[in-house]
Design a protein around this nucleic acid. Structure first.
Length: 287
DNA sequence: CCCACGACCTGTGGGC
DNA sequence: TGCCCACAGGTCGTGG
């Protein structure tokens, strides 16, 4: 799944086809994704112009001329394909879906300019809704979200406040979108490795200088991943060359049994399970 | 309130 | 080859 860098990459890939475009036709090929689609989903979108395509946490936000916003979340396996005049592009570094994916082509948008944007999602953990723009901030999906990790409100002081008194391990705590918005399993694992902090350490027991190092590690890994077009975990046949390539830069994630890459460390990456998710870390240099 | 855990849904890869 | 289990980039609801 797409975490912040993948969603941002998808946003950049979709923006040329969507921003300024008028939606001519919408096909909802089933009534629900993870949740039921908004009442009148296609009708509310048809004829609307997408003024801007933005991202908040892992959500894509298409700001519409109608005063509403199309909210899209990719879940674990959601991906978009853009077809323009017969040419296929798959923004976000996901490979072109093969024909048997057609049964997972759940929503299709056609623009007046002739672009077709198709949303595929095998596991259907993704979701979409059309919501009044003025009420977005109060909606349950956005109300409690923490700051953007690449924005001005995310710093060591914020983490110190958010972590204060927490006995939960820092790995699970960083996955909580109310603390900081947009991190997922991969980038939490990578950031903790870079910061030299054990994923098992209680969040409330991290010194201020190390929180500062954590903030910098999070920013750094996200920026590098965005520059690389995100990470592509699974391989699909028929790639179009647009795959993200940050997965080649993982230092801990999915490296169980391999040597720690921190110079002079000499440790071996371990895998443990925390909050039901795999954590990878080096017991030698992460304390 | 905090936290752990199962549920949601489908596909894939490894081991036997 | 086939079968079964574990696991997958996320989030939500329940229950202690």
């Amino acid at each position: 799944m797409p975490e912040l860098p993948e969603v941002e990459t998808v946003r950049r890939g979709l923006a040329p086809a969507l921003e300024g475009a008028r939606i001519a036709r919408v096909q909802a090929r089933r009534p629900d994704l993870r949740f039921p689609l908004t009442e009148g989903f296609g009708q509310r979108l048809t004829g609307a112009t997408v003024e801007k395509l933005e991202r908040r946490a892992k959500y894509l936000l298409a700001r519409l001329s109608t005063g509403e916003t199309l909210v899209m979340h990719l879940g674990m396996t959601g991906r978009f394909q853009v077809d323009v005049d017969g040419a296929v592009d798959v923004p976000g570094g996901f490979a072109e879906p093969t024909s048997h994916d057609d049964k997972h082509a759940h929503v299709v948008f056609d623009t007046e300019a002739g672009a077709r944007i198709t949303f595929f999602d095998a596991r259907r953990f993704g979701y979409m809704a059309v919501l009044p723009t003025a009420e977005l901030d109060e909606h349950a999906w956005f109300k409690g979200l923490g700051p953007e990790p690449l924005g001005p409100d995310f710093d060591a002081a914020h983490l110190a406040r958010a972590f204060a008194g927490k006995t939960q391990n820092v790995k699970a705590t960083l996955l909580d979108q109310r603390i900081v918005a947009g991190l997922g399993n991969i980038y939490v694992v990578e950031a903790l490795h870079r910061a030299g902090i054990s994923p098992r350490r209680p969040a409330g027991k991290i010194s201020r200088p190390r929180l500062q190092a954590l903030v910098e590690a999070i920013r750094q890994v996200l920026q590098e991943a965005i520059a690389a077009g995100g990470s592509t975990i699974s391989d699909y046949a028929g790639t179009d060359g647009a795959l993200g390539y940050f997965q080649h830069d993982f230092r801990a994630y999915d490296r169980e049994g391999e040597p720690c890459l921190k110079p002079g460390c000499g440790g071996t990456i371990r895998r443990i399970v925390q909050a039901g998710r795999s954590t990878f870390y080096c017991p030698v240099c992460q304390r």
